[in-house]
Design a binder for these strands. Structure first.
Lengths: 221, 221
DNA sequence: AAGGTAACCTTACAGCATAAGAGAATCAAT
DNA sequence: ATTGATTCTCTTATGCTGTAAGGTTACCTT
């Protein structure tokens, strides 16, 4: 007791909103966002669950916060660059972020309050489009089209019941049930002749659609 | 007692898997999928929660089931039709189903076992593409691109913090915070000059992207 | 040294999915 | 008609969940 001379040097509180959110992000990546609970989050931080509520308002606040952290990971090209290359880079960076955090796309549906990183992101994208000669209405079209594609692709990719490295044939059979070739001939054709071929990676489909959309936007602009 | 002469005419069990799933679908539409619990589902059916487990394996089974019900609502054009018109109709029908059930797109992420209606849907879409002259690889590209766009658009639409009929300006301010025009000038421009104009409906953006994609696919085919 | 304040913990509650088993009702076969 | 088996439903219980309410501790300011 008398041997402890640290009255106000060591900060008592290692807990901050940032630390809480970064820990939540790591837990969501490890075990999925469904397994993220306030108790487990607190346990990871060596603290009781209720202590978290001094730094975040609610669990929804935590979810809003980690979604904004994901947006913060997306690289934003400078507005001066050629719009097509800039939008291509932005799309690829977004897709990489959503692959690192597969739960993020599905979480969007229930979020309501966009964080500062989210707003900054949207504003930067619109800046690129406007500087590239898009009218306001045309920028809205392009913005909606590109983001729908990017999020939808991430959603599909997260929904795949296998990883690119898995043995795909071992996965296809239970998915299709006992009589795939008879009941679903075209699905069977797609699987056996394309998806189950060695080296196939669904992720490679992304650039095909992205470049098709960008070319279409260039014509429509 | 003696006045009741119905020994085996009236079926004792009004509970079936179909009835359980249709009730779950209705509850999800009314209160959102997050508010759907086995207890409330049972209560709606006038039964205790555990009785449901004789007709469905788990809550996940219920969620898989109602997603398949949504797929069942999508109209599938006949294979004989022109592929472009058929895919356009299919996309619009899918989008309508996802607007009737806004939780469905976000739910995909966590589902694993596709139901029979889902498989039938995928097979029919592939049939249209193959009959339209798409190679297997090209059909995979088109399939991925179109569905990514459709689901992504549904996800964005479900995420909008307002309905088309709402007073949009009342909603924009709390979303952007106190200083929108200064911090996010392009976002502010988009809102004031386009989104907040009377008559704007985000749903109208859907056809622009869809037709752009279909035209691009026609060229790429 | 005293008071104020912010961070933390304890306790508690209502709701969640579902495992285990008991009770009742129906059907099949004698 | 009676029995036995099967199927459905309910009761009870366990260990989760988010978070409201209030008590305790440690620090900072004066």
């Amino acid at each position: 007791m008398a041997t402890d001379p640290t009255p106000n040097t060591a900060p008592r509180s290692p807990l901050t909103r940032e630390l809480v959110l970064h820990t939540a992000l790591a837990l969501a990546d490890q075990h999925g966002v469904a397994a993220l609970s306030m108790r487990k989050l607190a346990q990871q931080l060596g603290v009781e669950a209720m202590s978290l509520y001094h730094h975040v308002a609610s669990k929804d606040d935590v979810l809003d916060g980690i979604v904004d952290l994901v947006f913060n990971e997306i690289e934003l090209p400078p507005t001066t660059a050629d719009w097509k290359a800039a939008m291509r880079d932005r799309a690829i960076s977004t897709r990489h972020a959503l692959r690192r955090h597969p739960w993020a796309a599905g979480l969007m549906e229930s979020r309501s309050a966009p964080g500062p990183a989210t707003l900054r992101h949207h504003d930067a994208v619109l800046a690129i489009l406007r500087a590239g000669g898009f009218s306001v209405a045309m920028a809205a079209h392009a913005y909606s089209l590109l983001d729908s594609y990017i999020y939808g692709f991430a959603l599909q990719e997260a929904n795949l019941p296998f990883e690119a490295s898995d043995d795909l044939s071992a996965v296809a059979e239970p998915m299709l049930g006992p009589t795939p070739a008879e009941d679903y001939p075209h699905l069977a054709e797609m699987l056996t002749e394309h998806v189950l071929q060695p080296g196939y990676d669904y992720g490679n489909e992304f650039l095909f659609g992205l470049d098709l959309i960008l070319d279409g936007l260039e014509q429509a602009r």
